[in-house]
Each structure stands twice: as structure tokens, then as C-alpha cells.
Amino acid sequence: MAQFQKTSALSHGIDLTPALWKSFLAGQRQACARLITKVENEPDSIAEVREKLAGRIGKAVRIGLTGPPGVGKSTLSSAIALGLANRDHRVGVIAVDPSSPFTGGAFMGDRIRMENLVGDSRIYMRSLASREGHGGLSPATPHVADVIEAFGMDRILIETVGVGQAELDVLDCTDMVVLILQPSTGDAIQSLKAGIIEIADIIVVNKSDLPGTDTVLQSLRFVYSLGGSNRRPAPPIIATSCQQNEGIDKLVDEIEGAAATLIESGRHEELRRRRIVNEIRSGIQRRLWERYIAESDVERTIERVARDLVQNGESPYAFVRDACSRIELKSRPKEA
């Protein structure tokens, strides 16, 4: 796998020059594009970029758009982005498409559905390949959203790859989740009772010009009438048709209403706090892991231990305990 991935790999880094930073602050799209590439390609640079962005992020409402493949996520995202822009918002759109697990390549077709957004200065759209992400998003997604927000966008749409039932990464990166479905999936909804259907704040039945819309709407209302352990109230269910331009305004109203409630209730801030907690946790994990792995030969030791464990069938946790106690010893302050 790795040998394929390397065939088209690059390793030129991007310099965070004062000129690049200045152009970014001056609203130059080229500079925003470069910064996004930097956080996407160079995870080591995230700390530096994030520090520079401080004070420019935290206010935007991040809206996740998810659903099975082919339900019209990209077309609808485009319509929502325009709707929000027409209500005086500046809108970022991040559209994620799957990377090949074998070649590392990706075919990203969202722009075919988003032609209306090109050349609109109120909107910044970026395609991301999912790379190592397996939960519907690319690992860089939250950092890309930070860059786009700092560029001046106050609504950020994050469209996942086409998902099944349990790709829930979008929940951790956003303030609200819009689940998009389509007609003729009545039976599928029965099986969606747990997982992705539980995280939706708004449900959309798209392509409502097709037959079967009423059946899906009924199934959805039935699923939510059952209640369950979910603490949240049943989400609004909206039928839309991008082709007939129906329901889009209502959906944008609903999104804006939800955004206002989020902010007034303090929940927006609470979600942001949670994301920062996660950021701190993964930052520490990353630093500790790097520090540990930086020791000479530790990677080879792990390989060797794994080989032995396969042979003798023992558990890896004795090695984990030993490794952790060595990290602890190293981080203890030296006694005078």
C-alpha cells in the first residue's frame, strides 16, 4: 500500500512567510488556499498555524451535512451555501470525498454540483480527500475549518463522504448536523434507528419531486414517535427538491433558527469548549507519542515485540505498561 502512495507523493513544505500571512489577512484567496494545504499536508505545522489564527476563530457556526451516497448532498450544500450568503453570511464549504485505500488517490466530484458557487466572493469552497479518515471526514477537517473561519467566514458547511450508519466524525467537528435522505429508502430508515439518525438536528428528505417521498416522511415520523434514550427532541423533518427549488428556503430558515438558538442558549460555546478539550487531548497524545517514538529503534522494538506476541499469543499490555512507566520516569523533574 505504502509503495503506491509514494508514487505521487510530494514533500515540499510550505513556508509560513510574513507575505503569505499578510495576504491571508488581506483576504487573498490564494493565501487562504495555501494555508489550507499547509494544515492538510503538514500535521506538524498545525500548532504554529493555530497560534497565528488565535482571536479570529470561535464565532462561526459549523454545520455538518451527512447522508448516504447519491442523496444529493453536494447539490443541496450548494443551495444552502447560496441561501446563507443571500442572508448576509460569508460561507465556507468543505466537501470531503473518499481516498482510495490502495493508491491514496481520490476522485473529487463535488464541484460538478457546486458550479453556482464559483466566482462568488461571499463563499469559499474546498474539496478534501478523506485520506486516513474513516469516519466520513478527513483528519484535517477541523483545522481546515479553522483556517476558513479565520479567513472571515461565519457559516461553515462540512459535507461528509457518503455514509452508512455509523460514520459519526461529523458530530465532533460541528455545531449541528443535517442528515440528508431521499425517497425510496423507507426500509433503510428502519435499520437507521441507531447511529447516524440519532445525531441529526435537522432531517431533510431531498429529491422530494420523486415518488415515495410521503412514505419516507411517514417512516421518519414513526421512528421519532418511538422516542428512546435520546435526550434530544425530535428534529424537524423537511422535504426539499433542488431540481424544483422547493423547500430550500424553509431549510435555510430552519438552519438559521437552530443557529440562533445554539448561540442564545450558550450551547454553541459549550460545543466549542468540548472541541477545545478534544484538541488538547489529541495534541498531548500526539506530542507524547512523538516523544516516545523519537527514541532510537523504538519502532523496530515494537515490530519485534509484536512478532513475539503473535508467536506466543500473549497480550500486548505488559509492553504498554512498561513503555508508559518509562515515559513517566523521563517526564519526572530531576531531583537536585
Partner: peptide, 18 residues
């Protein structure tokens, strides 16, 4: 894509500007 690249496909009827 097979060669490991990330391809943004714009499709038909584009302008040089778009």
C-alpha cells in the same frame, strides 16, 4: 487517481475563469 493523485473533477461546460 490510480497513480495516487487527488483529482478535482469540474466536468463539462466550464469557462477559463471558472
Amino acid at each position: 487517481v490510480e497513480a495516487g493523485m487527488e483529482v478535482v473533477y469540474l466536468g463539462l461546460r466550464q469557462t477559463p475563469e471558472s
